[in-house]
Protein backbone atom coordinates (compact mmCIF):
# COMPACT_ATOMS: atom_id res chain seq x y z
CA UNK A 1 0.00 0.00 0.00
CA UNK A 2 2.71 2.44 0.97
CA UNK A 3 4.68 1.57 -2.15
CA UNK A 4 1.62 2.28 -4.34
CA UNK A 5 1.19 5.79 -2.90
CA UNK A 6 4.94 6.31 -3.26
CA UNK A 7 4.75 5.56 -7.00
CA UNK A 8 1.98 8.17 -7.25
CA UNK A 9 4.18 10.62 -5.32
CA UNK A 10 7.11 10.15 -7.70
CA UNK A 11 4.90 10.72 -10.75
CA UNK A 12 3.48 13.90 -9.18
CA UNK A 13 6.99 15.11 -8.37
CA UNK A 14 8.15 14.62 -11.97
CA UNK A 15 5.09 16.54 -13.22
CA UNK A 16 5.79 19.32 -10.71
CA UNK A 17 9.35 19.73 -11.97
CA UNK A 18 8.78 19.28 -15.72
CA UNK A 19 5.44 21.02 -16.35
CA UNK A 20 5.41 24.15 -18.50
CA UNK A 21 2.93 26.10 -16.38
CA UNK A 22 4.04 27.38 -13.01
CA UNK A 23 0.54 27.19 -11.47
CA UNK A 24 0.09 23.53 -12.37
CA UNK A 25 3.55 22.83 -10.96
CA UNK A 26 2.42 24.30 -7.61
CA UNK A 27 -0.76 22.19 -7.66
CA UNK A 28 1.31 19.05 -8.34
CA UNK A 29 3.49 19.96 -5.37
CA UNK A 30 0.30 19.94 -3.30
CA UNK A 31 -0.39 16.40 -4.53
CA UNK A 32 3.07 15.34 -3.32
CA UNK A 33 2.47 16.82 0.14
CA UNK A 34 -0.99 15.35 0.67
CA UNK A 35 0.25 11.92 -0.47
CA UNK A 36 2.90 12.20 2.25
CA UNK A 37 0.13 12.94 4.79
CA UNK A 38 -1.75 9.76 3.73
CA UNK A 39 1.44 7.71 4.07
CA UNK A 40 1.93 9.13 7.57
CA UNK A 41 -1.50 7.86 8.61
CA UNK A 42 -0.51 4.39 7.38
CA UNK A 43 2.74 4.64 9.34
CA UNK A 44 0.85 5.20 12.65
CA UNK A 45 1.88 8.86 13.00
CA UNK A 46 -1.33 10.89 13.55
CA UNK A 47 0.50 13.83 15.15
CA UNK A 48 2.73 14.35 12.14
CA UNK A 49 -0.14 13.82 9.69
CA UNK A 50 -2.16 16.69 11.21
CA UNK A 51 0.82 19.05 11.03
CA UNK A 52 1.69 17.98 7.46
CA UNK A 53 -1.83 18.59 6.11
CA UNK A 54 -2.03 22.06 7.69
CA UNK A 55 1.47 23.07 6.59
CA UNK A 56 0.72 21.95 3.03
CA UNK A 57 -2.43 24.08 2.86
CA UNK A 58 -0.63 27.19 4.18
CA UNK A 59 2.29 26.53 1.83
CA UNK A 60 0.07 26.32 -1.24
CA UNK A 61 -1.73 29.53 -0.32
CA UNK A 62 1.57 31.34 0.19
CA UNK A 63 3.09 30.01 -3.06
CA UNK A 64 0.05 30.92 -5.15
CA UNK A 65 -0.18 34.37 -3.56
CA UNK A 66 3.51 34.97 -4.28
CA UNK A 67 3.45 33.95 -7.94
CA UNK A 68 0.07 35.44 -8.85
CA UNK A 69 0.16 38.22 -11.50
CA UNK A 70 3.73 37.35 -12.38
CA UNK A 71 4.75 35.54 -15.55
CA UNK A 72 3.47 32.01 -15.15
CA UNK A 73 4.90 30.47 -18.30
CA UNK A 74 8.01 28.38 -18.26
CA UNK A 75 11.19 29.99 -19.48
CA UNK A 76 12.34 29.46 -23.04
CA UNK A 77 15.86 28.54 -24.04
CA UNK A 78 18.04 25.66 -22.98
CA UNK A 79 20.29 25.37 -20.00
CA UNK A 80 23.95 25.03 -20.87
CA UNK A 81 25.09 21.57 -21.90
CA UNK A 82 27.65 21.40 -19.09
CA UNK A 83 25.04 22.05 -16.39
CA UNK A 84 22.78 19.27 -17.66
CA UNK A 85 25.67 16.79 -17.76
CA UNK A 86 26.67 17.85 -14.27
CA UNK A 87 23.13 17.26 -13.02
CA UNK A 88 22.96 13.74 -14.42
CA UNK A 89 26.41 12.94 -13.03
CA UNK A 90 25.35 14.24 -9.59
CA UNK A 91 22.21 12.07 -9.56
CA UNK A 92 24.24 9.02 -10.67
CA UNK A 93 26.87 9.53 -8.00
CA UNK A 94 24.11 9.95 -5.42
CA UNK A 95 22.59 6.60 -6.42
CA UNK A 96 25.96 4.85 -6.24
CA UNK A 97 26.49 6.13 -2.72
CA UNK A 98 22.93 5.31 -1.63
CA UNK A 99 22.94 1.74 -2.98
CA UNK A 100 25.91 0.97 -0.77
CA UNK A 101 24.09 2.33 2.29
CA UNK A 102 20.68 0.79 1.61
CA UNK A 103 22.05 -2.75 1.53
CA UNK A 104 23.20 -2.51 5.13
CA UNK A 105 19.83 -1.26 6.40
CA UNK A 106 17.56 -3.80 8.15
CA UNK A 107 14.20 -5.02 6.91
CA UNK A 108 11.40 -2.47 6.64
CA UNK A 109 9.18 -2.57 9.71
CA UNK A 110 11.60 -3.92 12.34
CA UNK A 111 11.89 -0.80 14.50
CA UNK A 112 13.89 -1.77 17.62
CA UNK A 113 16.66 -3.38 15.54
CA UNK A 114 16.75 -0.54 13.03
CA UNK A 115 19.90 1.17 14.21
CA UNK A 116 21.22 0.05 17.56
CA UNK A 117 22.56 3.38 18.73
CA UNK A 118 19.37 5.25 17.76
CA UNK A 119 16.69 2.89 19.07
CA UNK A 120 17.89 2.86 22.71
CA UNK A 121 16.52 6.31 23.74
CA UNK A 122 13.28 5.66 21.86
CA UNK A 123 12.59 2.51 23.82
CA UNK A 124 13.43 4.36 27.03
CA UNK A 125 10.89 7.07 26.19
CA UNK A 126 8.21 4.50 25.40
CA UNK A 127 8.75 2.50 28.57
CA UNK A 128 9.11 5.36 31.09
CA UNK A 129 7.34 8.25 29.38
CA UNK A 130 4.07 8.15 31.30
CA UNK A 131 5.66 7.64 34.71
CA UNK A 132 8.27 10.38 34.33
CA UNK A 133 6.28 13.14 32.63
CA UNK A 134 2.69 12.28 33.54
CA UNK A 135 1.27 12.75 30.03
CA UNK A 136 0.04 10.03 27.74
CA UNK A 137 0.99 11.41 24.31
CA UNK A 138 4.60 10.26 24.06
CA UNK A 139 5.34 12.42 21.00
CA UNK A 140 4.48 15.58 22.94
CA UNK A 141 6.52 14.26 25.87
CA UNK A 142 9.59 13.92 23.64
CA UNK A 143 8.93 17.26 21.96
CA UNK A 144 8.39 19.40 25.06
CA UNK A 145 10.15 17.51 27.84
CA UNK A 146 12.95 15.13 26.89
CA UNK A 147 14.12 17.13 23.86
CA UNK A 148 12.77 20.52 24.87
CA UNK A 149 15.92 22.31 23.76
CA UNK A 150 15.16 21.24 20.18
CA UNK A 151 11.83 23.03 20.43
CA UNK A 152 13.48 26.13 21.90
CA UNK A 153 15.88 26.27 18.95
CA UNK A 154 13.04 25.62 16.52
CA UNK A 155 11.01 28.54 17.91
CA UNK A 156 14.06 30.79 17.62
CA UNK A 157 14.64 29.73 14.01
CA UNK A 158 10.97 30.41 13.18
CA UNK A 159 11.21 33.86 14.75
CA UNK A 160 14.39 34.87 12.94
CA UNK A 161 13.17 33.55 9.57
CA UNK A 162 9.99 35.63 9.86
CA UNK A 163 12.05 38.66 10.87
CA UNK A 164 14.24 38.12 7.80
CA UNK A 165 11.22 37.95 5.49
CA UNK A 166 9.79 41.17 6.98
CA UNK A 167 13.11 42.98 6.59
CA UNK A 168 13.56 41.83 2.97
CA UNK A 169 10.04 42.78 1.89
CA UNK A 170 9.67 46.15 3.62
CA UNK A 171 8.93 49.20 1.54
CA UNK A 172 11.70 51.53 0.47
CA UNK A 173 11.43 55.02 1.82
Amino acid sequence: MIELILFFKIIAAIIAIESKNLLSAIVSLGAVGFALAIIMVFLNAPDVAIVQVLVEVVLLVILVRATLHRDLTDLKGKREFFVKVFGIVAVGAFFLGIAWGLISLPVFGSFPETAVSVAVPSEWYLAHGLRQTGISNIVTAVLLDYRAYDTLGEVTVLFSAILGAVVILRKKR
Binding site: L43, V118, S122, L143
Partner: peptide, 22 residues
Protein backbone atom coordinates in the same frame (compact mmCIF):
# COMPACT_ATOMS: atom_id res chain seq x y z
CA UNK B 1 6.25 2.85 16.78
CA UNK B 2 9.23 5.18 17.27
CA UNK B 3 8.19 8.49 18.98
CA UNK B 4 11.59 10.19 18.58
CA UNK B 5 11.44 10.11 14.76
CA UNK B 6 7.96 11.64 14.79
CA UNK B 7 8.99 14.46 17.14
CA UNK B 8 11.99 15.30 14.97
CA UNK B 9 9.85 15.28 11.80
CA UNK B 10 7.31 17.71 13.36
CA UNK B 11 10.14 20.13 14.15
CA UNK B 12 11.57 19.72 10.65
CA UNK B 13 8.24 20.40 8.93
CA UNK B 14 7.60 23.69 10.76
CA UNK B 15 11.18 24.89 10.18
CA UNK B 16 10.75 24.01 6.49
CA UNK B 17 7.66 26.23 6.24
CA UNK B 18 9.46 29.26 7.70
CA UNK B 19 12.48 28.73 5.46
CA UNK B 20 10.21 28.54 2.40
CA UNK B 21 8.69 31.88 3.42
CA UNK B 22 12.19 33.41 3.52
Amino acid sequence: VDPLAQAIVITSIVIGLSIVAL
